[in-house]
Design a protein around this nucleic acid. Sequence first.
DNA 1: ATGGCCACCGAGGGTGGA
Length: 252
Amino acid sequence: MKIATWNVNSLKVRLPHLLDWLAAEQADVVCLQELKCEDKAFPLAEIEAAGYHAAFNGQKTYNGVAIISRAEAQDVSRDIPGFADEQKRIIAATIGGVRVISAYFPNGQALDSDKYTYKLAWLEALTAWLKDELVRYPQLVLAGDYNIAPEERDAHPDWKEGLLVSEPERTAFRALVNLGLVDAFRLFEQAEKSYSWWDYRMMAFRRNFGLRIDHLLVSPALAPQVTRSWIDKAPRKLERPSDHTPVLLEWA
DNA sequence: ATGGCCACCGAGGGTGGA
């Protein structure tokens, strides 16, 4: 079983990249974020023609998440129950007995922004919800754009402070880990300076001035089955790329 | 080494992303 997470930064613009990538990578499940399209504009025919089912939770202009899968998703749910939010950031479904969540965590904009306060409140609600979900679904993957570089090694050495690396954000990430979730990427030896996002500006990709902010956290029951996790930098090298690149894992 | 890019909407430049 191969599962990926990819913030495509506009599904409409990135659809050709996605379709090419699906054909090459043959992933069983792909969690997408930042669709930036309404449900009625979701390119379902193209996804199905590629051999995938799709479940999505979209909105105009901003946010939007999807799960596309070879096998049809069961028991699809959207958003965080009990957390009033206009922003479409969560979709969950059961595929092959595993609960899969595609999540687009808030960015936060700046440490002194209301959006940063919202980010931390959202993380608290997510964590409380997941505590229950893990009881219901022992086999679970939380995949997405976390907008948090969890540790110092997950940020370029010159990226020392501010949004995405702040201590409150990292503490919130650790709260997820404290539920028992495991960062699949760190189960394996990885190259230094492995990142999943690079700013479009400043030739950041060329300089590898990036952050590892896209993650696949797996439940304790699933973690022992994971055989591999890696970042595929190839799509970031294409013309007109997303600023994020796919992160994957495989389990037996 | 964060203004400099990209996508959105909509017809200008403002907003948001990370």
